[in-house]
Write a protein that binds this DNA or RNA. Structure first.
Lengths: 174, 174
DNA sequence: CGGTGATAGTTGCATTTGCAACCATGTCAA
DNA sequence: TTGACATGGTTGCAAATGCAACTATCACCG
């Protein structure tokens, strides 16, 4: 659980010291900065779930994601995982190594192109995925519920939009 | 070396070469998992901006955030920053150390409670913030534009909701 | 063939992290 | 005053990460 740290910190007699108040020099408002908000939200929602797969299976975030992707797509090469998940090559490589070692995914070199290894969840891997997947579903449902079903749907659309348009060149570079 | 993050990844016409078949077993659908989408979106939108402040000022994400918070709130102690930003104690501590060293923030021990140091942007710090802030604004505007202004507003609301730990509404505004 | 250049995946190394233990100071109550 | 406990902040260390080589394989062109 993300312990909220909710603060009784800011009541006026529990002071944020001296010169509070916005700094006039800049018009930049962090609280409305989309990347920032996205980050916070992502952190907030990821963290509590991360605790779970970490505690129960000693999984890294990356590892969990790799598993999830393999669960979703059946079999993939490492590069496919990269493309789909937007995770760095190296990270995937190491996650795969670890997961293979634990017997949760299998890796079979492709004959037609021996540079590639085809990755797949093993039976054990499926067990893990299913267990965690159930949790994930429940958690997700709770989140959507909290937002309102329709709103949640809208959110998903926008997020997809942002993901697709991530770091593009048509964005201002002063 | 700047714009890695390749993402012609998910658009429907994407080949995804080696995918052989879906995996039946699990009912978990990664593509709809909110924390996952949020993460992706956060990554996508943060990265390109991060490149900028990293290249230009050698700033870490955390450092940038600390600066932004100090810019927003004027002066804070490290713990205040933690509470506001939801960043780990340690991370803040180190960021502050680095930023102080570079002369971008000042740290003054509080007399009433010598455990605390009051942090503030120096003039130099303000310069940095203003420069980057301008970029940030432009970038943010572009993102909102891409989403549609109204949709973007809705998005912000939902994100705040997810962040949960509280609308910044209880904080000194302006 | 041989050469050039992409692609899959790994490894080395310097940074960043996360977590827990650790000071120093402050608070409150007996 | 003293002692128990809370708080602000730092540090040590073991992971996790990012980036730039580097290997091995393939593809194509002459």
């Amino acid at each position: 659980m993300t312990a909220p740290l909710q603060n009784d910190a800011l009541p006026e007699d529990q002071p944020i010291p001296t010169t509070r108040g916005q700094d006039r020099a800049s018009s930049f408002s962090l609280d409305d900065f989309l990347p920032y908000l996205l980050n916070q939200a992502a952190e907030a929602t990821s963290r509590s779930f991360a605790v779970r797969y970490k505690a129960e299976y000693g999984l890294t975030r990356t590892q969990w994601r790799v598993i999830a992707h393999l669960g979703r797509f059946g079999s993939l090469t490492a590069v496919d995982v990269c493309r789909l998940s937007q995770i760095e090559k190296t990270k995937v490589s190491r996650a795969v190594a670890a997961l293979t070692e634990r017997g949760w995914i299998s890796r079979v070199p492709e004959v037609r192109d021996r540079r590639r290894d085809v990755l797949q969840l093993t039976t054990g891997g499926h067990v893990v995925l299913n267990r965690l997947g159930a949790n994930a579903n429940a958690y997700d449902a709770a989140l959507r519920d909290h937002l309102g079903t329709d709103a949640a749907k809208g959110l998903v659309l926008m997020l997809r939009r942002l993901i697709g348009q991530g770091s593009r060149e048509d964005l201002p570079h002063d």
